[in-house]
Amino acid sequence: MREELDWQARLLELIARQEQPADLPALNPAGLAVYRNNYRVGLMESLALFYPVLGQIVGEDFFKGLAREYSKQVPSLSGNLHVYGGQFGDFIDAFPPAAELPYLGDVARVEWAVHRSYYAADAQPLPAVALAGVAPEDYDDLCFGFAPSCAVIASRWPVVAIWQGHQPGAALRVDLGAGGECALVHRQQGVVKVDVCSPGFAALLAALLAGQPLGEAAAAAMLAEEHLDLQSALLTLFQLGLPVSHSL
């Protein structure tokens, strides 16, 4: 069995690390080339599916270059290709040829959130009345679980306008100098939506999503937006059906 195990491990390495010479005995180089091509092209095509706006912004050739480089640096860790590509935004931020378009990384983060939102499991929203039994002095310690289809991205760039401007049928009207936007990605009646939210709302949701209790999340939100109406922000979370559980 040792030989069979070693052969599988070595074949995987040879396919994934394309610079290695084919040193397995009796391995047909043309056959290995087919697998190497399948692997690389499969990952690149997945990225192209998940990041259509990036593709429109940078054009097909540049996108292929980005995707090829990413696929060389980031190995696949799952048999399910839908989970490949989650670090594309961070990769782009650190990729010198993309430095001229500094908003690309945040656009990528929005696109990944949209992709994950579409495939996320359904979850039953928590009705606001569920909090009726919580004593006011315990509010600060409340933690919430959220629908897996929701995410928030705070950006120094108008990422929502950029994303919306590249949707089918949309007229592209983006002023890159217009300042930053925070993107709320969520799913309503089966449709993934990307909406602008305020910096305070974004900070509140980001902190709660990270598992921080309400008291700490509220402090972070007020820091991000001095005049945030906290009560109204919380109400909006519930109206959108984003919290699905709570705990003390």
Partner: peptide
């Protein structure tokens, strides 16, 4: 097969047709 340890290749790779592999 498609993985060995943490490493995945998202493809349909051939297996050894041996009795030992058959058992596994």
């Amino acid at each position: 097969f498609n993985h060995s340890g943490q490493r995945f290749v998202n493809d349909l790779l051939p297996i050894p047709y041996t009795r030992a592999a058959l058992d596994v």
